[in-house]
Amino acid sequence: MVEYKPQYYPGGSNVSANRRKYIDPNYKLRKLRTISDDDLVRLMGHRVPGEAYKSVHPPLEELGEPACPIRELVEPTPGAKAGDRIRYIQFTDSVYFAPLTPYMRAWMGHMRYRGVDIGVLSGRVPLEARERDLEKVAKELVETEIFDPARVGIRGATVHGHALRLDENGLMFDALRRFQYDKNKGEVVYVKDQVGVPLDRPIYVGKPAPEEELRKITSQFRVDGEAFRNDKELIQFVQRIHMLRTEAGFDPNRVKEI
């Protein structure tokens, strides 16, 4: 059998290369900041730091699961083993050179993490998982290069902002003003959790990346950055997929030599 080498994403542009990089689980995301475990828990707002995980069923070991080949094949995540409830973190990614776009965020998550349920909308991406698994995943999502404090928002509800112009400090709009720009420190600070409940003390998440840096690491095509029009390989790839789907829908026998 021919050895299969994943290609992750087509295209000849830097944006395509960034997309390949983020989706590839072998690429280690650069860590840029440290957010304490307690602060992360407070940002998400599901439990009080130090509080035990709430469970929705007994630990699997005590549950006495039925004989099932799938259960034998799939190792449960720690959260599933413990019976944790399912909780979420949700991000909004600005169209203005945010590191990730919603689809990239979702595909990256599916390739890198187990036991996650990810949705994709035009601005926001909810990621749901067992609570202790979620906290581990969220840590990487917030501490690494894919989180820019100004162009990415942690938002459970009232998420609009991805397509709006930026404010005078270069921050994405947030109707609930969960985050603010601290001019003295030059850092972005969260004053509310992801659903807008005020925090008992602010949480600093670091300095926004310079515009040139964002343009280098973004997975967003833009005509004022790297234009999609110039990535002929990617356009032809999409056109071919569309043609194959269309022809196969009309008559599968017409599609040959894929």
Partner: peptide, 30 residues
């Protein structure tokens, strides 16, 4: 075709259901 190109260009499209309809639309158009 426009929907598929849009999704790759912006890396985003509409809401869940929007994308569902448009990503299987090529196959049912003819």
């Amino acid at each position: 075709l426009s929907q598929l190109l849009h999704k790759e260009e912006m890396g985003r499209l509409g809401f869940y259901g929007y994308d569902c309809q448009d990503q299987c639309g090529s196959a049912n158009s003819f």
